[in-house]
Amino acid sequence: MNDLLVTCTALTKRYGRKTALAGVNLELGRGRIVGLLGPNGSGKTTLIKILCGLLQPSEGAVLVDGAPVGPYTKSIISYLPDRMYFADWMKATDLFDLFADFYSDFDRTRAMSMCASLGVTPSDRLKSMSKGTKEKVQLVLVMARKAQLYLLDEPIAGVDPAARDFILGTILTNYNESGTVLLSTHLISDIEKVLDEAVFLKDGAVTLHDTVDAIREREGKSVDALFREIFRAHDFEGGAF
């Protein structure tokens, strides 16, 4: 087992002429909940997708548990994407079968009990489920694994406050204690108290990486307040703030 779970070295990603990540250096340890914070377009999704192998970096290197991205790292990463990815004709239980087949750390019993507490009927076809319910199914799939690294891309964007609390509660009560959760968001006030560490991403570069308590102690203000100060020039989307 490697001491560091994630190591990014001079990670750069360009889409044509646009630079999404500009030399990101990032090290993440084990057993923490880390917030990947930045406004829309700062490179959060790009970084997460590189970690799970859906995007290839233009330059730089990534190591997860000491290994380059590949079948091994994929077997220890549990990824919640920013979109729905499964075929509509399946049932939630079909997806549980699939996950149980491919991921040895998937706990079917836990998935079923999470469904029960979330009010999801797993034998329903996904087609007949509302968008919110489908998102819950996806969350169950991701959190019912005993993974080493959970990558959650905007898990609380676009949901009402009650659902938000529920999602955060689910993450807090279900993540593997020796695993690390990296969750991206631009809604910081809602999640600040669940975080160990905060990583600020601005224009594709890491501008701050520290523990939430250290930031509060040093700055005398919340991470949320600091975030607003740093990113004031940015144009935030919607009325979230």
């Binding site: 909940i33 807090l172 108290k193 669940v194 160990d196 308590d213």
Partner: peptide
């Protein structure tokens, strides 16, 4: 710790 953290909605390490 985990129960208290869940009640308060905070990180278990905190």
């Amino acid at each position: 710790v985990r129960e208290l953290a869940a009640q308060a909605g905070v990180n278990p390490n905190t």
